[in-house]
Design a protein around this nucleic acid. Structure first.
Lengths: 210, 210
DNA sequence: GTCTATACGGCGATAGAC
DNA sequence: GTCTATCGCCGTATAGAC
């Protein structure tokens, strides 16, 4: 149709990248509510009109931020998933802990709770990540037991990603009661951190749990 | 000092209670972002100025809503804790599932992430609830095992309240992958039969699981 | 393709009139 | 106890300069 004369900045623009950096910073420092056209503009040293030129609406800002973050995140996950299969639970646990404390995800989740466009984007990213994790975890995980119940790979995965996220949520408001107890128990289950793999050499890892 | 001429409505006012009902409704239906003086006023059929008269700021609205909700919540919890000790894990699980799906708590948590006054109020309420739960749960829970690790009462409690909350968070954005698997596993554990430890009495519990 | 000036209505908040 | 006027931000839209 193009009855409107409004245009939009290119996705490859360097300025655009800088603006997204500012958005992330604002979200981490002051929360998503602090992300306004004027605030982003001030942080980047440009006019708010320019911010609007690249992201026409606030939703546009958040969607762009989520997409860029997700891409980075999935690259990072793919690397982590290169680990040996018997290391995957521990590796995914560490990955989840990192991601939970980075807090950007949490911020996006909270934001998605009432912005439909954000909600959909986050949901898709979450499912995508979960599928990658599950596909990697499933073949190597059998016989896990949880409180005397057999634990499916999916259930184990939810514990691995859910516990850090929940604990982080509580820590965000200053609640820490019993957190260490749960983390210790879970990490003892995951077993000792593996000695940094001596490459192809000695063949066998000295894993001796249970 | 009272240099200002501003005054505030009585806490016992019936109007005030009605307004808080509207606030809760708005939060459940459209999220905390929908709570504005004008929206609350419209829902209650009064002017926004009157809403401001009772709660001078938005923070005031949220704090009042949290306090009223917490009071109800703790009364409810106290009732639930009347259950026999060996039923407590199951009872607390059901309680947590209810509370998580009611979503008001989740809404408050999200809200507290960047409103300091709300954050403090939520933290205090959370700690208060946790202490009640822990005091009730501790004496009756020994020998719980979690993935081959001993599980302290505190750690078990965090699983009981954390799993529903995390799952609910994901469900809120439409993610459900593997949820049933984890819930089934946990509920089978809580099971129709008592958790461990038959007190000193008949020596053996009739535990036939596993 | 990049960037700016300007205008609009809605918001939280305050002071003060009735 | 109830309500108005006013202020300074906000998101958004438009028109147009370089």
């Amino acid at each position: 149709m193009a009855t409107s004369s409004r245009r939009t900045g290119a996705e490859t623009s360097k300025t655009r990248g800088v603006l997204l950096d500012c958005v992330e910073q604002l979200m981490l420092e002051e929360g998503y509510a602090a992300v306004t056209f004027r605030a982003v503009a001030a942080k980047a040293g440009v006019t708010s009109s320019l911010v609007q030129y690249y992201f026409r609406t606030l939703d546009g800002i958040f969607l762009a931020a989520i997409r860029r973050y997700t891409e980075r995140n999935i690259r990072h996950l793919a690397e982590a998933l290169q680990a040996p299969r018997d290391q995957l639970p521990r590796v995914l646990w560490e990955y989840s802990r990192d991601e939970a404390t980075s807090a950007l995800t949490t911020e996006f989740m909270a934001l998605g709770n009432h912005r439909e466009s954000v909600r959909a984007e986050i949901a898709e990213a979450t499912e995508q990540v979960r599928k990658l994790q599950l596909d990697a975890l499933s073949p190597g995980v059998d016989g896990h037991r949880f409180l005397d119940q057999e634990l499916t790979p999916g259930a184990l995965l939810l514990l691995i990603v859910g516990i850090p996220k929940f604990l982080n949520l509580e820590e965000g408001i200053g609640v820490r009661t019993a957190h260490r107890e749960l983390v210790d128990a879970f990490e003892q289950y995951l077993g000792p951190v593996q000695p940094p793999v001596p490459k192809s050499r000695s063949g066998r890892s000295p894993r001796s749990r249970n």
